[in-house]
Simulated assay, not measured.
Amino acid sequence: MRTIKQTGSTNADLLALTKQGVAEGFWLRAEQQSTGRGRLSRHWESPQGNLYCSTLVRLRPHDPSAGTLAFVAAVAVHEAVCLYLPPERVVIKWPNDLLVDGAKLCGMLLERTGDAIVIGIGLNIACHPEGLDRPATSLAASGAGTIEPAYFLETLADIFARWLEIWRVQGLAPIRAQWLKYAHGEGTALRANLPDGTVVEGFFSGIDADGALILRLANGTSHVIHAGDIFLI
């Protein structure tokens, strides 16, 4: 585990380090980022006091689908956050955003190079951005008290390693079950902005065996979504 004062993006740094043979399980944390990114290349505000980190998974021949590591990350961060907040307040939004009382607390970004999957995690601990297109919050604003990002990461790294081993040995099924336990409830109204610009609205009807989102449409049919930007309605 390595901590640096400031960088552009921990994901970008770790993607570069993979070419130098960095081992699985390595974590890189920055106290601040200048070019942090979320999904769809959104800028991720990165003031001091929050958690900005990335870790590395080296894919093995018999691992589950690489994309399902998004769910491993989601359940691991959820478990770590729930050491500070009641689980009923912390909801996972497909595929791996964390919401507290409906406001975004954490986002994650997975990127691949060769056999390496870099998982970036941005968690609002001390503060959160204002004026976004969706509400945001932090652990501090949610009543969790003062938390040191480095201490939080030590706990998270252990939890993530445990869930990663479950994923490798038992497959996606137990990860999926844990994810569904804490996800937005069945029938939650969702809007999906798809990569081709299409907008689909429907009701949450679970995820399939590979982790794709299933929406029940108003006409009673189901729509399966493999990628998109999801909003609670």
Results as ranks from 00 to 15, higher is better:
19 K>Y: 11
48 Q>K: 15
39 R>K: 02
80 A>P: 10
114 G>F: 15
42 R>H: 06
179 W>G: 02
70 A>C: 06
68 T>A: 05
39 R>M: 04
15 L>P: 02
103 A>P: 05
194 L>K: 08
93 K>L: 07
192 A>W: 07
115 D>C: 10
190 L>C: 03
102 G>D: 10
207 I>D: 01
17 L>E: 10
211 G>A: 04
162 R>G: 03
185 G>Q: 05
185 G>D: 02
209 A>D: 12
117 I>Y: 09
196 D>E: 14
176 R>L: 03
51 L>C: 05
23 A>E: 15
101 D>Q: 11
34 S>M: 01
215 L>Y: 04
2 R>L: 06
115 D>T: 08
211 G>K: 05
144 A>N: 14
20 Q>W: 06
163 W>Q: 08
11 N>Y: 08
147 I>Q: 10
191 R>N: 09
95 P>S: 11
77 V>N: 01
84 Y>L: 14
158 D>Q: 11
68 T>E: 04
229 D>R: 12
9 S>V: 11
207 I>P: 05
159 I>W: 10
210 D>E: 13
60 R>N: 11
205 S>D: 01
130 E>G: 09
174 P>L: 05
103 A>V: 05
5 K>N: 08
140 A>W: 14
199 V>C: 15
58 R>N: 01
193 N>E: 15
219 N>V: 12
30 A>M: 11
175 I>M: 07
8 G>T: 08
5 K>A: 12
199 V>N: 11
215 L>S: 02
49 G>C: 13
205 S>Y: 00
28 L>Y: 05
91 V>C: 07
96 N>T: 09
176 R>P: 01
33 Q>M: 10
164 L>M: 05
63 D>P: 09
193 N>Y: 14
117 I>A: 06
204 F>S: 01
11 N>S: 09
156 L>V: 11
93 K>E: 10
98 L>P: 08
9 S>K: 08
79 E>Q: 12
101 D>W: 13
42 R>L: 00
186 E>T: 00
57 V>Y: 11
66 A>L: 03
179 W>K: 04
74 A>E: 04
146 T>P: 07
190 L>V: 06
124 N>S: 13
90 V>S: 08
101 D>S: 07
133 D>F: 03
181 K>L: 12
104 K>M: 08
89 R>D: 13
92 I>K: 10
208 D>K: 02
201 E>P: 02
27 W>D: 07
19 K>M: 06
108 M>K: 11
91 V>H: 10
73 A>T: 05
67 G>H: 04
23 A>K: 15
168 R>L: 09
74 A>K: 00
37 R>L: 06
150 A>F: 15
79 E>T: 11
205 S>W: 00
162 R>N: 05
222 S>W: 05
161 A>R: 07
11 N>H: 03
94 W>M: 05
32 Q>D: 13
76 A>C: 01
172 L>I: 12
229 D>S: 12
207 I>G: 04
133 D>L: 02
203 F>R: 04
95 P>N: 04
176 R>E: 03
4 I>G: 08
